[in-house]
Simulated assay, not measured.
Amino acid sequence: MSPPPAAAFPWAEVMAFGLGRLGWTPEAFWRASPHEIAAAARAFDGVRGGQPIARGAFEAMMRAHPDLCGDPSLEEER
């Protein structure tokens, strides 16, 4: 007796996740390993290890690495 046939890989769903939800370029998507894609999917499903970042640490990170959006008027002096 042979085992049942394996289900087809859900390419459409995985590509939609990587290219759409994650915003990866096609090059980044095709370079990603299955483990990397699975890790990203777990992060979106709320399956994470560890604790959330503390508010103070988050604010310090934001000050150290501001989002400038190319507008020099938003840049703070460092």
Rank of each mutant, 00 (worst) to 15 (best):
M1I: 09
P3S: 06
P3G: 02
P4K: 00
P4T: 06
P5Y: 08
F9R: 03
P10C: 05
V14C: 09
M15C: 12
F17H: 06
F17R: 06
G18H: 01
L19E: 02
L19W: 08
L19A: 10
G20W: 03
G20E: 06
G20P: 00
R21P: 07
R21I: 09
W24N: 06
P26C: 14
P26M: 07
E27L: 10
A28Y: 04
R31V: 06
A32D: 00
A32P: 07
S33Q: 04
P34R: 05
H35W: 10
H35A: 15
E36M: 11
I37D: 01
I37N: 01
A38Q: 08
A38K: 03
A38S: 07
A39L: 11
A40R: 07
R42L: 07
F44E: 14
G46D: 02
V47D: 04
V47E: 00
V47Q: 05
G50C: 06
G50V: 05
G50M: 06
G50N: 02
I53L: 15
I53E: 15
I53K: 15
I53H: 12
R55P: 05
G56P: 12
A57G: 13
E59W: 09
A60K: 12
A60W: 09
M61G: 14
M61L: 14
M62N: 13
P66W: 00
L68P: 05
L68Y: 08
L68D: 06
C69H: 05
C69R: 13
G70A: 00
S73L: 01
S73I: 02
L74T: 06
L74D: 03
E75G: 08
E76W: 01
E76L: 01
E77P: 11
E77L: 12
R78L: 07
R78P: 04
